[in-house]
Design a protein around this nucleic acid. Structure first.
Lengths: 342, 342
DNA sequence: CTGAAAGCGCTTACAG
DNA sequence: CTGAAAGCGCTTACAG
């Protein structure tokens, strides 16, 4: 039964074969499974039968135009690493996809590289019912969305916008990381900020929490180290006796690279140096050694964002609220008491 | 300039303000930048001006219906690991996204978990102009696509279908891995197949090439080992003096896990054991030690697949051909000559 | 409960 | 070069 795209059966075909009007067929097709007072049950059955035998499928192109709903949500993010959200957002993306498709929406991943004509077009062409952004988002994109009347929800945007947001409690999460190291007996702890320090507000908050945690324990926090993993390790070695016994790395990919750099330098984790990082996504548990990390509640973030957006689409409360979800320390093998305890 | 979605300007608004018909406005809007003999240049300029000042954007919903083209391509894959294609397909996905958007198409990632009603609906609702599948694909999906007249191109499907395909030369790639180990002086080489052995034809071909490579060198190939990384390491240890000096792992995530298991067992890579795997995607170069691996030509695969599909959509040759692209060995630090050379 | 008509916002022959 | 009309494939008041 090959149906060339040029000759898909339409609602008109179904109507003709049923001897009914298109309007009635439409009602029958859209009536709930149990039947509806708007349509005679025998009529409904007949329409369904004919439709099935014809291999009829409603055209989304037409439905979308007529109903003013595309059941499609843009998942927008800008990423240096590629066309698809990785690392931190694996779980979030999984959650969004599951949550949306359970509610009969289809997500479209929108990889933004700046705001070019293409982005303007796709945001403005009424293809989406709404937009969920991941991570730091270009304000220009949000402006476009507003101009085009596209409702948004922001995940981890950091932006102080007027859209509903779900954020993550980096202060609390980072605080737990510090407490964990302090509890193990560390007193000399450094914060490694990678190359992209403070481009994301999370990085800033994580560092702030480190400062506070150290200060509260009567210790002096250090400036964040910014540079490549190799540079950081060189720095550590240059420190000699003042070398820290523990490091907090702002992000897990960076931590994996740092693990390698330390290994090259012959510095053993966790024997010579404890390491704790952020994000509990693959492959942090598979590296050498398995990383102690602060996990973000990815599924929960996704669920909440979808809830907020769909509620808005269904005409619910449009007051932009900000949800802040807690993070959770996952202890594995990259942290241990300092070898030469005081 | 906030335009509520309920009051987006339409082509009718533009026409009215220009004192022109919708037909003429449509022509003006769609004429090439330089102008066209079908439309007076001053008219075109005026329409463009008014459209811009109005913040007019053509509705994709309407255009798609009228033109019978959605400029949207489904990227379909089934994945146990999540909503988004990972690992092997990072590069391919990047390539597809770049290639498609350069040609004015938008990809929609379609995460398939079996063929349920949802898949049937989305494949049948004429939302896509075509479909590109990644990896092993359920024949039922392909059948649906054919029923609904949706043109497909298959990447690494392994299926012996009647759709155009781009495949990868696993026999050649795996052969290079074996040759590399032989050249280093290894004679006792094992093939580790992970847990999912032979679910994907690639795994089979890689193993076959290993067999042949060994035999050609006058060595006896071993049966593939199937099991977890821990089980495999236990097996290696049990081998005692017969323990191999090199291992080929069918896939890079598996190799990363194996690296960890070997580390726990105190077996050093590459000193005690060389390891080569497949796929050159993040983070294979960042682990301990950086992995020697057989790279797949991801960008090339993507480019070719898009070429094939769009050619087909533009009415070009529809004969299903199969393209086979070579793989390429990337030598890093997980391979070395055997310590105790014969 | 069913149907005729208009509408969603575009494009496409076809006249003129 | 411009426009009137029909059409893409649905849905939605509104009558009956």
């Amino acid at each position: 039964m090959t149906i060339p795209i040029t000759s898909r059966p339409t609602i008109t075909d179904v109507a003709r074969l049923c001897g009914l009007s298109k309007a009635t067929v439409s009602k029958a097709l859209n009536a709930p499974e149990g039947g509806s007072p708007l349509i005679a049950e025998p009529t409904r059955m007949k329409v369904l039968d004919v439709a099935r035998s014809l291999g009829y499928r409603p055209s989304w192109r037409a439905t979308t135009l007529a109903r003013k709903r595309s059941q499609t949500i843009a998942i927008a993010y800008s990423s240096a690493t590629g066309a698809v959200p990785r690392g931190v957002y694996f779980e979030v993306v999984d959650g969004l996809e599951a949550e949306l498709s359970a509610r009969d929406y289809l997500p479209t991943f929108l990889h933004l590289r700046g705001v070019d004509e293409r982005v303007d077009r796709v945001l403005g062409d009424a293809r989406f019912d709404g937009l969920i952004s991941l991570g730091v988002i270009d304000p220009a994109v949000l402006r476009l969305a507003r101009d085009y009347g596209l409702p948004c929800v922001l995940i981890n945007s950091g932006a102080d916008d007027t859209w509903p947001r779900v954020n993550v409690n980096d202060v609390q999460g980072s605080g737990e990381a510090v407490k964990h190291l302090l509890a193990l007996g560390h007193t000399n702890i450094l914060y490694y900020a990678g190359l992209t320090m403070f481009r994301h507000p999370s990085a800033q908050q994580r560092y702030d929490a480190y400062r506070r945690g150290m200060a509260d324990a009567g210790l002096t926090p250090a400036e964040p180290f910014i540079g490549t993993a190799d540079e950081f390790v060189k720095h550590l070695i240059a420190l000699g006796d003042a070398r820290p016994t523990a490091v907090i790395d702002y992000e897990h990919w960076s931590a994996i690279r740092l693990l390698q750099a330390l290994w090259r330098a012959g510095i053993s984790v966790p024997n010579d140096m404890s390491l704790v990082t952020f994000n509990d996504t693959h492959p942090v548990a598979d590296v050498i050694p398995p990383l102690t990390t602060v996990a973000l509640p990815g599924r929960e973030m996704a669920k909440r964002a979808v809830d907020m957006l769909l509620k808005r689409l269904d005409g619910g409360d449009a007051t932009p609220t900000t949800l802040v979800l807690d993070e959770k320390l996952v202890v594995r093998e990259s942290t241990a008491p300092p070898r030469r305890a005081t």
